[in-house]
Design a protein around this nucleic acid. Structure first.
Length: 109
DNA sequence: CCGTTGACTCTTT
DNA sequence: AAAAGAGCCAACG
C-alpha cells in the first residue's frame, strides 16, 4: 500500500506533482483556478489539471478544494460539491448561489 | 496504441 | 446572449 504510493510518487513526478505542489502553496482563505494552475505549468491543458485533482492521490494532504472555475463557480469535487463548499466556508470564504467572488479571494503566486 | 472522457477555458457562430 | 467548436493532456479500456 504505502509502497505502491511511494513508487508511483517517485516514478511519476510529472504534471500532477507540479499541480499538487502549487496547490500546497495556497494559504487558507485564498483560492485559485484551474486556468491559473495550468498557466503556471506552462500549458493550456486546463482539463488535465482538473483530471489530476479528480484522481487526487493526496486527498487530505492537498487542499484541492481551493481550486474553482475561472468564472467563479465552484466546479466539482471528488467527494461531493457540498463538501467542497463546506470546507471553503469553514475557511471564511463567502459563497453566493454556488458562486465565489474571485477578485476578493484569488491567490496570486 | 488508439479512442474516449473529464473537477476546463477560449473563440467562433 | 447562448450554443457549439477547438485546443489541450492525463488516465483508462
Amino acid at each position: 500500500m504505502l509502497r505502491t504510493f511511494l513508487k508511483k510518487a517517485l516514478l511519476k513526478m510529472g504534471f500532477n506533482e507540479k499541480v499538487y505542489d502549487l496547490l500546497k502553496k495556497i494559504p487558507e482563505r485564498k483560492l485559485s483556478t484551474y486556468k491559473i494552475l495550468a498557466e503556471k505549468l506552462n500549458t493550456k491543458a486546463y482539463r488535465a489539471v482538473g483530471n489530476a485533482l479528480n484522481k487526487n492521490p493526496n486527498a487530505p494532504y492537498v487542499p484541492c478544494h481551493r481550486i474553482i472555475n475561472s468564472n467563479g463557480f465552484i466546479g466539482g469535487y471528488a467527494k461531493g460539491i457540498k463538501k467542497k463548499i463546506d470546507l471553503l466556508k469553514k475557511e471564511g470564504i463567502e459563497i453566493k448561489n454556488n458562486k465565489i467572488d474571485l477578485k476578493k479571494y484569488l491567490f496570486k503566486f
